[in-house]
Write a protein that binds this DNA or RNA. Structure first.
Lengths: 124, 124
DNA sequence: CCGAATCGTTTAGTGCGCTAAATCTATCAG
DNA sequence: CTGATAGATTTAGCGCACTAAACGATTCGG
């Protein structure tokens, strides 16, 4: 199964699952509803889709379904980051980092953190 | 007008325009066709869409249209990068950089380049 | 027992990106 | 002039994300 491309709301759902580890449809609906309105049936429909593409799985617990993520958040991040990298920055990771440093607010602490990573990287 | 989200092929078209500065539909079709098959009419249809959403503009030159980008590649990169950042990395640019360094091949030269940027950043 | 609430399922419709044939129009070769 | 060629425009259809009402089944409060 390929890169697993996700839509906006599908991603919201996955994030709830990654956060909680496991969740019922109702929990997911409520969580998303805290920041934006969404109908419960919409969430359920999307859960179907996610399950069909192998992104999540469920098991019955009583009469409700408990959903769990099958793909790891990190794997997903890698996939989507690489996609951005290839399609928008010509595959040049350096350009992306440069872009981030120039255009995004990166806190002093983050800069320090990055420097540490860089140093470790340079040693290899 | 908002962040200007682009589809996959729309992005290919924009990249040709960013590259060349200006191009006819035919040139764009040929360029894309060098790497993947696409019908000329498809390109023309997409050019319409791009123009409607304000991403490009055209003027007639003889009986053919010459298209030019209206949004800058850099602006686009910023928009799409921020989108990734917010939706996938919780808005934490440091996480994204860390992810890149851990998962992507970053050449020694790139690392050096990044370090320079970091140093400059740190001074501010 | 019965109605309300809560599940999951079915069904339906919208919008958008993408695809490309079909068509109309103007130019150009001969 | 005429046919071919190369523009642009129109039209049509697919797939997918998203939306959510409607429906059927089950459980729970009283």
């Amino acid at each position: 199964m390929p890169p697993t491309q996700l839509g906006r709301v599908q991603l919201l759902i996955m994030q709830v699952l990654w956060d909680k580890g496991r969740a019922t449809a109702r929990e997911i609906t409520d969580t998303i509803n805290a920041s934006e309105p969404i109908a419960h049936s919409t969430v359920q429909t999307l859960l179907r889709g996610l399950e069909q593409k192998g992104a999540i799985s469920h098991r019955a617990e009583g009469r409700t379904f408990v959903f769990v993520p099958l793909i790891a958040e990190d794997k997903f991040r890698t996939s989507v980051t690489r996609d951005l990298l290839d399609r928008v920055f010509g595959g040049n990771a350096g350009s992306l980092v440069a872009h981030l440093l120039k255009h995004e607010k990166v806190s002093r602490e983050e800069v320090a953190e990055i420097r540490k990573l860089i140093d470790r990287q340079a040693k290899k």
